Deep mutational scan, measured.
Amino acid sequence: RYRTTFTSYQLEELERAFQKTHYPDVFTREELAMRLDLTEARVQVWFQNRRAKWRK
């Protein structure tokens, strides 16, 4: 599977959502995914990776 490349707008929005909550529920993820034209799975994985980065 190829690596997803996020646009700067998508990253800004994902980071903004991350500032609000590190653990968005499925509705929040679905809403973000639709708004950013991504799949909910991509959003979920982004948050997993972002939390890992945050913990370091």
Rank of each mutant, 00 (worst) to 15 (best):
Y2G: 15
Y2W: 09
Y2Q: 13
Y2C: 04
R3T: 15
R3L: 13
T4C: 06
T4M: 11
T4V: 08
T5R: 03
T5D: 15
T5S: 12
T5M: 12
T5Q: 09
F6Y: 13
F6Q: 07
F6N: 04
T7E: 09
T7N: 10
S8W: 03
Y9K: 14
Y9N: 07
L11C: 04
E12W: 05
E12N: 08
E12A: 06
E12Q: 05
E13N: 14
E13S: 06
E15F: 01
E15G: 02
E15D: 04
R16L: 06
R16G: 06
R16I: 05
A17D: 02
F18R: 01
Q19T: 07
Q19L: 13
K20I: 13
T21N: 10
T21V: 09
T21S: 07
H22E: 07
H22G: 12
Y23I: 07
Y23H: 06
Y23E: 13
P24G: 00
P24R: 01
D25G: 09
D25I: 03
V26P: 11
V26N: 14
F27K: 13
F27V: 15
T28R: 09
T28K: 09
R29Q: 09
E30Y: 14
E30H: 03
E30P: 01
E31K: 11
L32G: 00
A33T: 06
A33S: 09
A33P: 00
A33F: 00
M34G: 15
R35E: 05
R35Y: 06
L38R: 01
L38Y: 04
L38E: 05
L38T: 14
T39K: 07
T39N: 10
E40L: 06
E40T: 09
A41C: 10
A41W: 06
R42C: 12
R42H: 14
V43Q: 00
V43Y: 01
Q44S: 10
W46N: 01
W46C: 00
W46Q: 00
F47M: 05
Q48E: 15
N49M: 05
R50A: 13
R50T: 09
R51M: 10
R51E: 08
A52N: 15
K53P: 03
W54H: 09
W54K: 10
W54F: 13
R55D: 12
K56I: 08
K56C: 04
K56V: 08
K56N: 06
